[in-house]
Design a binder for these strands. Structure first.
Lengths: 203, 203
DNA sequence: GTCTATAGTCTGATAGAC
DNA sequence: GTCTATCAGACTATAGAC
């Protein structure tokens, strides 16, 4: 692949991320992507077979990046620190990559018609593996005895909320507050309390 | 308005809830709504001026129901019980009204272009009022000293996650588990821990 | 009030010159 | 590789008969 091809492909994907993340698959148009990427509409289709091909390429290309923080949870690390670190990295991704968050949110919200394989495959496999690690940490008393799947869901829900519903969060907080900075402290407190094992010796 | 008119209008709105919540505004078509409601396409437009009018009517009509649980938080009640009750009612709404949850999620996710007034108006006003109540509870030591806005966001994020991302949650948990029933216990534990005031006497 | 027919527009994709 | 021109289908909305 030439340098020009690489540059055009990535310009298309960059523009597509903008457009798909804001409008969802059906709401997005090739015209918008063409305009935003600076290429003509037929030229998009020279690089990608169809509108759907662009979308699929985007999703699968971002999947690895998106799952990296969970992948990085180390079974050999300090449980509390590993999980707090995972939460922090996810929040940081919501801050730095809100478009990616909304891209996935749009897709899942609408039933993941173009992505169910990825969810049922890579995602489930990874979550199952990490859930086993977390369950072990709970069983050995290193963290509280809570369901690992719902713990992971709660990290997703709380961190991605600030990206996916950013318009609402900012509207409610008003223009002078920084949602992400405040979320950092709040979620730190929340997950500290959630993960702390019950200290039976205190009773 | 005749009985027939009332029945047709509500049939349209019921069908529109199905279609808009699954596809978003731009992804939805009048054909789908017509088919789902059993009326012809021109007949939809006899009852509503446009596709957008249907959507706006849906959103504003559901706004009151959607905010009722927060409205019901009683400044005179027992703080911990009030907030746990709010969380429980929100989770119950995710279970019973996932389409409504996804309708709002789609709209907010895409920047709330048809709903920003509602968010900046009624929603912000209500949240501001309840935040003041919660802050007072914190200050008097009845619950933990946490930010009331982010507490409310966390209730929204965690309860609505089970409706909005239901496909993903079910795929990860597998077919034999009941997400909502499990969430009940998990969120009960999470918010109990989060709201509990620090007991200084213990140190 | 409800229908068929259709106007007018938008959209994904292709043809073919260069 | 990139463009202009354009097709075929889908879409919102309206006209007009009944």
């Amino acid at each position: 692949m030439t340098r020009i091809q690489r540059r055009n492909r990535s310009a298309i994907l960059e523009a597509a991320l903008d457009v798909f993340s804001q409008n969802g698959f059906r709401g997005a148009t090739l015209d918008q992507i063409a305009q935003s990427s600076g290429l003509s509409k037929p030229n998009l289709l020279y690089y990608f077979a169809s509108k759907e091909a662009i979308h699929i390429e985007l999703l699968s290309g971002l999947m690895e990046i998106w799952l990296a923080p969970l992948h990085a949870v180390d079974p050999g690390g300090v449980p509390q620190a590993e999980l707090m670190g995972y939460m922090r990295r996810k929040l940081e991704m919501s801050r730095q990559m809100p478009r990616e968050s909304r891209l996935f949110a749009n897709e899942v919200l609408q039933g993941a018609p173009r992505f169910l394989d990825g969810i049922r495959g890579d995602l489930k496999t990874l979550v199952d593996a990490k859930a086993k690690v977390i369950r072990h940490w709970s069983a050995s008393g290193k963290i509280a005895d809570i369901d690992p799947y719902h713990l992971i869901f709660s990290i997703w829900a709380l961190t991605q909320h600030y990206a996916d519903f950013e318009v609402q969060v900012r509207s409610v907080l008003g223009p002078d507050r920084d949602p992400f900075q405040e979320a950092e402290g709040f979620l730190e407190e929340l997950f500290s309390r959630l993960l702390k094992p019950v200290d039976d010796a205190a009773h």
